[in-house]
Computed example of a mutant assay.
Amino acid sequence: MFRLSNNLIGILNFLTFVLSIPILAVGIWLAHNGSTDCEKFLDKPFIILGAFLMLVSLAGLIGACCRVTWLLWIYLFVMFILIVLVFCFTIFAFVVTNKGAGDALSGKGYKEYRLGNYSNWLQKRVTNTKNWNKIKSCLIDSEACQQINGGQNETLEEFYKESLTPIQSGCCKPLDTCGFTYENATVWTGSTNSTEPDCNLWSNDQKVLCYNCSTCKAGVLQTIKGDWKKAAIVNIIFLIFLIIVYSVGCCAFRNNREDNAYPRKRSHHW
């Protein structure tokens, strides 16, 4: 009879193998059918993640259920590296997202965000032209600016009461200090005497708006900051799960070694 730890590792890795199939399929579909840069940007991560889960789960499944000790050793080694990486990423996520916050505006329901308030590492990710073009493509595809509640029909007073997301605040409108005249949520007219570079980058073209502004990049970083903090909490739970699986895997590995050694002991006795 298989021992409990071998059965548990086998079941867990079978479920992981089944999960890897749709992940890999999505990556392959995006690679061949992705119509935008945003979609194509996601294909490689999906393919790599799907292939990784498939190979590791197969190693764990065969190693535990067929008692192939060397495969189970590889599985445990990869799991150990994964635990270390998840732990390091969790610490890193807390460190790089420690800085940065929005500036509250008097009488406004939204905040404005400044790029210089965030960590240098995050700033470098969005100031890289190649990276930003991909991010900008995703922002335009998401139509975040068109999703502002009042849209074309709200007054300036109603707009000021809007609870805009960091991306909507940074990418969909000019800075308040620019002094533009409000027409609707994404159309602002007039000239500015401001020395703020972002004011000169504003455009009423719905595919341009303030997507090239530093405030837009800051809005993206504020969103990433919130997402990463949530991800770090999830990572802690995932890390605990990985450690439990790793411990069970070590028991299965020990079982394999004992089972493989037993026939030799019996043969030597006879």
Rank of each mutant, 00 (worst) to 15 (best):
P263T: 05
Y211M: 11
S163M: 15
G107C: 03
L55K: 10
R67S: 13
S137W: 02
I48C: 08
S106N: 10
N200M: 12
W29E: 01
V84N: 01
I233F: 12
V78D: 03
K99G: 05
P263N: 10
N117G: 07
T36V: 12
K130Y: 06
N117V: 02
Y113Q: 06
I236H: 08
T192E: 02
V208M: 12
R257N: 15
L175F: 11
N153T: 07
E143P: 03
N117T: 04
C38T: 14
G27R: 05
G170H: 03
G150R: 08
P166V: 05
N133A: 15
D227H: 06
W202C: 13
N212E: 01
P174D: 02
N98S: 15
I23N: 04
C88V: 09
L71Q: 02
V56C: 12
F46K: 00
G170Y: 01
W29Q: 03
K230C: 14
A144I: 05
K111F: 09
Y182S: 14
I83L: 11
L8P: 06
T97D: 02
K161Q: 15
L239Y: 06
K99L: 10
N235P: 00
L122T: 00
N120I: 02
Y211E: 03
G219M: 03
D198L: 11
T177S: 15
P197H: 13
A31L: 11
T195S: 15
D103T: 07
P166G: 12
G116F: 07
I233W: 08
L24C: 07
V18Y: 04
A31N: 10
G179I: 05
T192G: 10
Q152H: 07
C199E: 01
V86M: 11
M54R: 10
D103L: 09
S119I: 01
S194M: 09
T177R: 14
G50R: 06
V248G: 09
G179R: 12
S247A: 14
S5M: 10
T129M: 08
F77Q: 06
I140N: 05
L49G: 13
L72G: 08
S57I: 04
T69R: 10
C251I: 05
D141H: 04
I74C: 14
F41Q: 13
T189Y: 00
S163H: 15
P174K: 05
V208Q: 15
V220W: 05
N33P: 00
S169P: 06
R114E: 02
P22I: 03
G10A: 14
D205S: 15
T223H: 07
Y113C: 10
L71E: 01
R266W: 06
L82Y: 11
Q147I: 00
N193R: 14
I9S: 12
A231N: 05
R266F: 08
L30Q: 01
T129L: 11
Q168T: 04
Q123R: 13
V68E: 04
V126D: 00
F14S: 11
A144R: 13
K108D: 02
N193T: 14
S119W: 01
I167Q: 09
I9W: 06
